[in-house]
């Protein structure tokens, strides 16, 4: 059994043991909500970006990892003066998506990917039951870096098999599987030892990381972007071709200090409508 599959088996067992001992989880274990399997198997993958990065991604036709961006001289790894967390965590060659609504970073544009990309690109992908970037500052902030990295590795799953664990989490940790889409999250802590600083969806949202690149042609279900970006010349041409190929383009008018909230809310309702 490989490392990723071993993690999956171990964590499924731990979750089951945890649920058996938690009064709030026991009835759910005995009679899981009818929608758990359905939600777990149908959640699309999302990726949010700011306007400039969104424009570049559309121009390149690919989401690229930091390593690939650096290699091509597009965005140097040392550009911010400090190395990105991905270098510390060994995820610098990854493209990040979430199973569920947009969660991080808090920006204004977003892509929704057909979950079938997990079958096409899953062989070199990994999933975790939390946001890997959150480990350093929010989920395991008191650990030294080597321990944080080890923690991450111990919670990596194969793709798409991770959806078994997602389904199990939805069944026992959430009052309803649909709560996974919201901001409040599970009402049971679960067996994974994390600190939430503050309580954030990054702690319970599953991350799916693809190696090096993820194309945006033929893989998208929907695109979300604000009015000002949609109106740009390049974007109008792009939106036209997306629409012609069946991609659902959602143009958002955003409150001045609430573009991110609007993006999140829209993605939640879109996902609900899509998979119900």
């Amino acid at each position: 059994m490989g490392r990723l599959q071993g993690n999956l088996s171990r964590l499924l067992t731990e979750l089951n043991t945890y649920a058996q001992g938690e009064p709030v989880c026991q009835p759910r274990l005995a009679a899981p909500h009818a929608d758990c399997e359905f939600v777990a198997r149908n959640l699309p993958l999302t990726h949010s970006r700011g306007a400039e990065a969104f424009r570049r991604i559309c121009g390149l036709g690919d989401l690229l990892s930091r390593k690939e961006l650096d290699k091509r001289g597009i965005m140097l790894i040392k550009a911010g003066g400090r190395l990105p967390l991905e270098v510390d965590l060994g995820t610098v060659d990854c493209v990040f998506t979430y199973a569920g609504p947009f969660r991080y970073p808090e920006t204004s544009c977003g892509f929704v990917f057909d979950l079938r990309i997990e079958k096409v690109y899953g062989a070199t992908a990994v999933a975790t039951p939390f946001d890997s970037g959150g480990v350093v500052k929010h989920l395991r902030p008191h650990d030294p870096l080597p321990d944080q990295v080890a923690f991450l590795r111990e919670h990596e799953f194969p793709v798409p098999a991770y959806r078994q664990y997602l389904e199990a989490c939805l069944a026992v940790l959430f009052a309803s599987p649909w709560e996974y889409l919201g901001k409040e999250g599970p009402d049971a802590d679960g067996p994974i030892d994390i600190v939430e600083n503050p309580r954030t969806p990054r702690a319970w949202t599953f991350e799916v990381r693809f190696k090096d690149r993820l194309p945006i042609t033929g893989t998208l279900l929907a695109v979300f972007l604000p009015v000002a970006v949609a109106a740009e010349d390049w974007a109008r041409a792009k939106i036209s071709s997306w629409t012609a190929s069946g991609v659902d383009v959602r143009i958002l008018k955003a409150p001045i200090d609430g573009a991110w909230e609007r993006l999140c809310e829209e993605s939640v309702s879109w996902i609900r409508d899509r998979i119900k």
């Binding site: 970006r49 700011g50 965005m75 550009a79 911010g80 003066g81 400090r82 990105p84 954030t200």
Partner: peptide
């Protein structure tokens, strides 16, 4: 809001956020 430090801002800048 999220409390952070200068290293977060450095990384956000580096990550085009």
């Amino acid at each position: 809001g999220i409390e952070g430090d200068e290293s977060d801002l450095d990384r956000f800048v580096g990550n085009e956020q």
